[in-house]
């Protein structure tokens, strides 16, 4: 128990600290690296509550794909981050005000948190106990049965995202030379290679 509690506080504190660093680091590359650290700590928290599948997905998807994509954007695009930050002080008062209001609301809400009286009945447990099935297995069981509607609808959302990306960015430029594998394969030495006698010292 003590080790678990220690691990929780370690992961939680590191996650919050790296979250703060993400927005306060001057160098955008450092921000992305801190973001990756935050994802790893969140994955650690998931492992602690026994959701190992979510933990691994978080690492694979967010660290493996999203964060690397961020790094690409930060490194390859010529964005002047110092210039982007210029308006920061100007918007600080209103941003701080909204932040304060939200914080006050949160404290107010969670200070007096009540759950509905019969919440225990509403909270059904569709997942079998963890000693019978693995996490992944249990998730698969409900995603493909009880939540098939939402699963399919999410698939449609991803399809739209794909169509949208193609519609907004794909361009057919004229004069681009593309690889034609059929042409390459059907090339014959006699069509393209010419053997010449070259007298020494005169060049072709």
């Amino acid at each position: 128990m003590v080790i678990q509690a220690l691990a929780f506080y370690l992961f939680a504190a590191l996650a919050v600290a790296s979250g703060v660093m993400v927005i306060s680091a001057r160098n955008p590359v450092h921000s992305v690296l801190f973001l990756i650290l935050a994802f790893f700590n969140a994955a650690g928290l998931f492992v602690l509550i026994g959701a190992e599948f979510l933990a691994m997905i978080l690492v694979v998807v967010y660290v493996g794909a999203v964060a690397v994509l961020f790094l690409f954007v930060v490194m390859m695009l010529d964005i002047n981050f110092a210039e982007l930050r210029e308006g920061f002080l100007q918007y600080l008062p209103i941003g701080a005000l909204i932040g304060l209001i939200l914080a006050a609301e949160l404290i107010l809400i969670f200070g007096t948190w009540i759950v509905a009286p019969d919440v225990g009945q509403a909270l059904t447990a569709p997942i079998l106990p963890p000693d019978q099935v693995t996490n992944t297995h249990a998730l698969g069981r409900i995603i493909y049965t009880d939540y098939i509607y939402l699963f399919q609808a999410s698939g449609l959302i991803l399809l739209i995202a794909m169509i949208g990306a193609i519609v907004l960015t794909l361009r057919h430029r004229p004069g681009v030379r593309r690889q034609k594998i059929a042409d390459q394969v059907s090339r014959r030495p006699e069509d393209v290679i010419e053997v010449r006698d070259v007298t020494t010292g005169s060049g072709v």
């Binding site: 809400i109 759950v115 009286p117 509403a122």
Partner: peptide
Amino acid sequence: AGTTSFDGLAAAFATDSDAPVG
């Protein structure tokens, strides 16, 4: 409420006369 279904939510709010701040 511990549920996201509209029917469940309606039932959860029907029993409580005074809704909490959250």
